[in-house]
Write a protein that binds this DNA or RNA. Structure first.
Lengths: 233, 233
DNA sequence: ATTAAACCAATCATCCTACGTTTAGGCGTG
DNA sequence: CACGCCTAAACGTAGGATGATTGGTTTAAT
């Protein structure tokens, strides 16, 4: 019945406030936050208390401090920052396999939950893919392809799945673009058509089967190329 | 060619060292780490520097400080702690859907990559499930069922997938046990047999189909119960 | 003998002062 | 225009001090 009470330290209060400012977009990625003296005055805490809070968020990947310059927001999501760290320590193929898992489930749920707006966007993006193929526009195709996948995942209306998928996509963006470039052939376009068609018909099984075909073709292509090399940074 | 250099602050060095001690199991979960004066002496840093490092790990969920008492290790994985926080803020059904995604992919990969040891363990656990069903031993069944699923995911040999799956399982452990309790009927047992059989035959498609059937049955059961209520804490 | 209250040492939480190091920007010179 | 120097701003680290909390021990009351 009664909730366990818990006294929150000043540092934790400050850290949570700052985290809120970042997650809500008040402090945007790339922005330089106010300097220590200013924050001390605003929050009415000592420098040590403030620094401990800033250090917590720095370690979590949300902030980045530059001595002599200031402190910058470098991510708006702790989960995103932690996943990025984890992914960069992982074998890329393993990460792609996790992404495939999310794509399959996403397609399944998208077929059940998609809205008309989302359908229109998918059809629009699919047409852009087709146009890019006709023009031989590799980069244009890659961009539209990525957006198509994101829209499909978004149509799952599962926030957690979307978040995991997008963080993985962000971290591996260059690689995913490279893989998308390799897709610029009609077999992938046909599979994409089948996928969008299945989602239109709300046929979850066909949507999953299309994603499965797409993933199988991708794996074959990657293996034929001798694996996945990480892009140079 | 040349790598960008980067000077690591003392705080970051201390935090990473402590994080290593935790991840490697030198500082185990539940353990009280040395007090500040002792750590200051060992690491040859000022108290402020040490406290900033400790605060970073506290905020990350690895440590928990108790004033007057000491500082305790409460998790060995940052990703686990962050995922837990994220999951507890989420709709439980959404989390289960992500878990389903991982289970499908896990079964697919397990059929391809399982070892003989893993097979023996799956067969052993499947037999334990059968025994528990015969005895009407609900809790026994739930335990064996969970271990069977973990072994199958482990047979995927995809570290990242395993880690995500296990963190989700930890966070939702009570709920998963409740769901497993509801499974104690022969339809689930038959599906589990088909799943293990598919993995034995290295038939990835059948393995995925079995997981799909299992998930479909689970969803029907959950919806028939009027949804998923989170267990009281 | 048992229980409750008081006490104490250890430990973390917060504040303050001080100096060191780094950085970006402005200014002057060639 | 490019380079070097200087300066102020800003973060990094150290040390000192006081306050608050906690668990264990001791004392007093029943």
């Amino acid at each position: 019945m009664l909730q366990k009470t818990s006294r929150m330290t000043l540092v934790e209060q400050v850290a949570l406030q700052m985290e809120s400012l970042i997650e809500s977009g008040t402090w945007t990625v790339g922005m330089r936050i106010p300097a220590e003296p200013e924050l001390m005055a605003e929050l009415n805490v000592s420098r040590n208390t403030l620094r401990e809070a800033i250090r917590a968020l720095t370690h979590a990947g949300l902030l980045k401090t530059k001595q002599g310059d200031g402190t910058y927001v470098c991510s708006s999501s702790v989960l995103g920052a932690v996943l990025q760290k984890r992914i960069l320590r992982s074998d890329t193929l393993q990460t792609l396999e996790v992404r495939h898992a999310l794509e399959r489930e996403g397609a399944h749920l998208a077929a059940q939950r998609r809205t008309n707006d989302e359908l229109e966007r998918m059809i629009y993006l699919l047409e852009n893919c087709e146009t890019a193929v006709q023009r031989g526009d590799i980069d244009g195709y890659a961009m539209q392809d990525m957006q198509l996948h994101q829209t499909i995942i978004g149509a799952s209306h599962n926030d957690m799945l979307i978040e995991l998928y997008e963080h993985i996509a962000e971290t591996l963006q260059d690689l995913i673009i490279t893989l998308a470039r390799r897709e610029i052939g009609t077999v992938y376009l046909e599979i994409h058509r089948q996928l969008v068609d299945a989602i239109i018909r709300q046929d979850a099984d066909s949507a999953v089967a299309a994603v499965h075909r797409y993933i199988t073709e991708s794996k074959i292509a990657v293996e034929a190329q001798g694996g996945v090399e990480r892009e140079e940074e």
